[in-house]
Design a binder for these strands. Sequence first.
DNA 1: CCAAGTAAGTCTTGATTTAAGACTTTGTCA
DNA 2: TGACAAAGTCTTAAATCAAGACTTACTTGG
Lengths: 168, 168
Amino acid sequence: MRWQTLDRENCSLARTLAVVGDRWTLLVLRDCFLRVRRFEDFEASLKIARRVLAERLALLVEEGILVKRPYQDRPVRYEYRLTEKGLELYPALISLVHWGDKHYAGKSGPPLIHRHRTCGHDFRSALTCSECGEALDARAVEVRPGAAAKPAAPIPANHIRSRTAATP
Amino acid sequence: MRWQTLDRENCSLARTLAVVGDRWTLLVLRDCFLRVRRFEDFEASLKIARRVLAERLALLVEEGILVKRPYQDRPVRYEYRLTEKGLELYPALISLVHWGDKHYAGKSGPPLIHRHRTCGHDFRSALTCSECGEALDARAVEVRPGAAAKPAAPIPANHIRSRTAATP
DNA sequence: CCAAGTAAGTCTTGATTTAAGACTTTGTCA
DNA sequence: TGACAAAGTCTTAAATCAAGACTTACTTGG
């Protein structure tokens, strides 16, 4: 599978990964949430190759996850900030971080602690059902194909063949 | 940065990504949550190169995210199943899926619909604070270094130099 | 018995991607 | 004028991946 074509897959995870699903991109986003904004700061923080960083930032901007805007003129210098769409990746990121905290932190505990400003407590993230508010886990979830899953009855003449296996 | 060494980074996200943070691995896990269990089924569903699939499955087993066990003898055949640790990745996965649903679904809606068995409703995932139960977003969260963040006072003699930038 | 089939891999080869670091551009400051 | 800074771009060698042929061990049909 070519990753460029992944965004045409009929699966929301595949389409998401086509955009943010590469290690560097996720680490760049982590830095964004930690208020890193400038090219050189990303580079220093991540020790990423400059070419790769430039490419990733450009993609994130193109996808509307970051905005690039000048923070000074003469000479013009840019910073990258999360858009609303970018901020919405927070649940996914924090879930990965907390999973890492749980399974890979040393004895001295996690390297970063997250505090909920509103209630004032350190927290772990919890996944809940948007409808009933209960905590969710994988076993309590049932999946069925939506309208957009492999075309059921009326297939447009020139429609791309869909695959036989279920593709979320 | 070499990805093999990433698990030694002092950042839970980096350590997590060292294990699951590659596109194929995340898609393999998606399939696991959709109850795909056999080598050939993963291959057919993902159209992944067999060598890469074998490698990824082996890593996931080694990390205790999947277990490999025979489902028949004569000839012995194996299946891969999520462990408890693997199941705990669900929040991260479903958050990525729902983000994709929101931003990349076509007009006919998302390809898969998730239903909460307990309450019977189709849902979106919601991130809440484990302490107060309120919905969480990135702006309501404050971060501070934990005990494990770059060694503060007493540095063991042979300790690896820590980096200057903040690494969550 | 022999041939074909199946599941789960391994191996080989050529194409992509990445890492590392030098180089470029535009402007400031001493 | 020379040194410095930020934000890139370019080059080349090394690592990783894709595609598909090959392997192993056992079953089933003729």
